[in-house]
C-alpha cells in the first residue's frame, strides 16, 4: 500500500500523458484528413452528395469496440499491416481514435461550411474574388463550427475505452510508467482490482478534461 501511494503521482501523470499524447495526435491527423474532405463536399454539388453526407453522419456513431476490432484485424500479424508490429502500441491506439474522430470532425465541419449563407459567397464572387478567396471567406465564416467539430472529435477520442483496450492492451510497466494505458482503460483496470481511489482520481481528471472541452464548444457555439 505505501509503495503505491509513493508511486501514484507518477503513475497518474504517466497515464494522463499517454492519454493526451494519443488523443491529441489522433485529432491532429484526423483534422488534416477531415477538413479538406468537409470543404470539398461542402463546396461541390454532385449527385449522391446527400448519400455521402448520410454516410459521414453514420460514422459519427461508429461503436468504438467494432472499430477497435477492425483495426486489430488490420494490424494483426496476418493482417495487411502485420509487418509493422503495431499491436499493443500507442500508434495502434492513434489509428483507431483517428477512425473514430474523423467522421465527427468531418460531419460537424461540413454542416458548418454548408450553413454559411450563400449570399456571403455570392458577394465574394460579386466583388471579383477568385475561387481561393471565396473558399477563404467561407472558411472564416465557418471557423467556429470547424473548431467545434475538432473539439467534439477530441471529446470522443479521449473518453473512448472500447477500441484502445482492444488494440492497446492496457499495458503499463512495473515502475508505473504507462505504455498503452489511457485514463479510460486505467479506470476499468483500477476498478477491476478494487483500487477505487485511483479510479476515482482518474475519473475526475477525465471529467474535468471533457467539461473543459465542452465549455469551449459551448462558448464558441454561443457566438
Amino acid at each position: 500500500m505505501p509503495f503505491e501511494l509513493i508511486t501514484e503521482p507518477n503513475y497518474l501523470r504517466s497515464v494522463i500523458r499517454v492519454s493526451l499524447t494519443v488523443s491529441l495526435t489522433a485529432i491532429f491527423v484526423s483534422t488534416l484528413v477531415s477538413l479538406p474532405i468537409a470543404f470539398l463536399i461542402g463546396f461541390a454539388d454532385f449527385p449522391g452528395k446527400r448519400l455521402v453526407t448520410a454516410i459521414i453522419n453514420t460514422g459519427m456513431g461508429f461503436p468504438s469496440v467494432a472499430v477497435g476490432l477492425f483495426v486489430l484485424l488490420f494490424i494483426s500479424t496476418d493482417g495487411p499491416l502485420g509487418s509493422l508490429d503495431l499491436v499493443y502500441t500507442p500508434e495502434a491506439m492513434i489509428i483507431s481514435q483517428c477512425i473514430l474522430a474523423a467522421p465527427v470532425i468531418t460531419g460537424v465541419a461540413l454542416s458548418a461550411v454548408e450553413s454559411v449563407d450563400d449570399a456571403v459567397r455570392d458577394t465574394a464572387y460579386g466583388v471579383g474574388g477568385t475561387r481561393t478567396d471565396v473558399a477563404l471567406i467561407t472558411l472564416k465564416e465557418a471557423r467556429y463550427g470547424v473548431i467545434t467539430g475538432i473539439l467534439a472529435g477530441f471529446g470522443r477520442a479521449i473518453s473512448e475505452v472500447g477500441s484502445v483496450l482492444i488494440v492497446g492492451g492496457n499495458i503499463a510497466y512495473a515502475d508505473g510508467t504507462s505504455k498503452t494505458r489511457t485514463i479510460t482503460t486505467a479506470i476499468t483496470f483500477e476498478t477491476r482490482r478494487g483500487e477505487f481511489e485511483t479510479a476515482l482520481a482518474l475519473g475526475a481528471v477525465l471529467i474535468v478534461l471533457v467539461l473543459l472541452v465542452n465549455g469551449i464548444v459551448m462558448r464558441l457555439g454561443g457566438r
Partner: peptide, 10 residues
C-alpha cells in the same frame, strides 16, 4: 537486472 522493460498484457 536486465535493463529490459516488461510489457504485461493481462
Amino acid at each position: 537486472r536486465f535493463g529490459v522493460q516488461v510489457a504485461p498484457n493481462a
